[in-house]
């Protein structure tokens, strides 16, 4: 029983991170049709920036409970990065075949992966000092860190905020109009360029936030972005690319499958995960909640 609850909590924790990454990916794809290959690397940048800044602040004597407020630094840095990359690098190529956007973001991926090593070195970074101030909760025979609940909560709150943004705000109307027909939106007087840069910024922010809040519990290591990208692919493939609800359900499913997989078939749990993606793509190519192409 104890182990079951622990595993469910772990799955929810993992689902929250996956959702943050996948929702950003699917938002960018939904609005501008770009499969951002560098999205996983954005997540890694979020983790490294947060880890490095918190480490730096701690060495200057900042108290751990204060450091908590600096966690979003990584997410903000990534949002700025995204809002630079979209207009400078991607915008000139929207009229071209979509292979070019894939390539450009693949180039960004390569640059960031090595860029992280150049800037932060190849030693793993960990900032677990922010976990302690939150305390922990006694559940049956084990203590569960409250920080993990913060992560789960962040995922839930983000899901709610994104829903509100998409369906309850003026910007959401503009966003959806642009994603359905960019030319029509432009003809209606919507500043498509502004919408794109904001959408790309929000999508990047979400990936960065995922990295920023996981880094107190897991070390920031070189290559973490690549793994995140591939798992995000699986999440959106299962949930339906371009669908926010799909990203949420996909993240939950993938997290549950991986947690169960690690428990029961630890050797090949990743293979099981990819096979599930294969199965969903065969059964419903557009994912569980995706629209027809």
């Amino acid at each position: 029983m104890d182990i079951f609850i622990l595993q469910v909590l772990n799955a929810l924790f993992y689902a929250s991170i996956l959702y943050l990454i996948a929702s950003g990916f699917t938002l960018i794809f939904g609005v501008m049709g770009i499969a951002n290959m560098a999205h996983g690397s954005f997540y890694a940048v979020g983790a490294f920036v947060t880890a490095w800044s918190l480490g730096f602040l701690q060495s200057r004597g900042v108290e751990p409970w204060l450091l908590v407020f600096f966690l979003p630094l990584g997410a903000i840095a990534v949002a700025i990065l995204g809002m630079l990359i979209e207009p400078i690098l991607l915008r000139p190529f929207y009229q071209r075949a979509h292979e070019y956007q894939l390539l450009l973001t693949f180039g960004v991926l390569l640059i960031i992966e090595d860029g992280i090593q150049m800037i932060f070195g190849s030693d793993p970074l960990l900032v677990d000092m922010v976990i302690a101030p939150f305390g922990s909760l006694q559940i049956f025979s084990f203590r569960y860190p409250n920080y993990n609940f913060v992560v789960i909560g962040t995922g839930l709150v983000t899901a709610f905020l994104l829903w509100a943004l998409m369906y309850r705000s003026r910007f959401g109307v503009v966003l959806r109009a642009t994603s359905q027909d960019m030319r029509m939106a432009s003809a209606m007087g919507i500043n498509v360029g502004k919408v794109y840069v904001l959408a790309f910024g929000i999508g990047s922010f979400l990936a960065g936030l995922g990295g920023a809040i996981i880094v107190p519990t897991q070390t920031a290591v070189v290559g973490m972005g690549l793994e995140a990208l591939i798992i995000a692919f699986v999440v959106v493939a299962v949930g339906g690319i371009g669908s926010q609800l799909g990203a949420l359900i996909g993240a939950l499913l993938v997290a549950l499958v991986r947690t169960a997989g690690v428990h029961f078939v630890p050797e090949i749990e990743l293979a099981v995960l990819f096979l599930i993606a294969v199965g969903v793509l065969l059964w419903r190519p557009t994912g569980l909640l995706g629209n027809a192409p």
């Binding site: 794809f29 591939i230 692919f233 090949i268 293979a271 990819f274 993606a277 294969v278 793509l281 065969l282």
Partner: peptide
């Protein structure tokens, strides 16, 4: 597995299958 799909769905299917082999 792949020949019924196109575009990004095809790309992700190829990716998933190849990753199974890699794992």
């Amino acid at each position: 597995f792949c020949s019924g799909l196109t575009r990004i769905f095809f790309a992700i299917m190829c990716l998933a299958l190849s990753q199974v082999v890699w794992v």
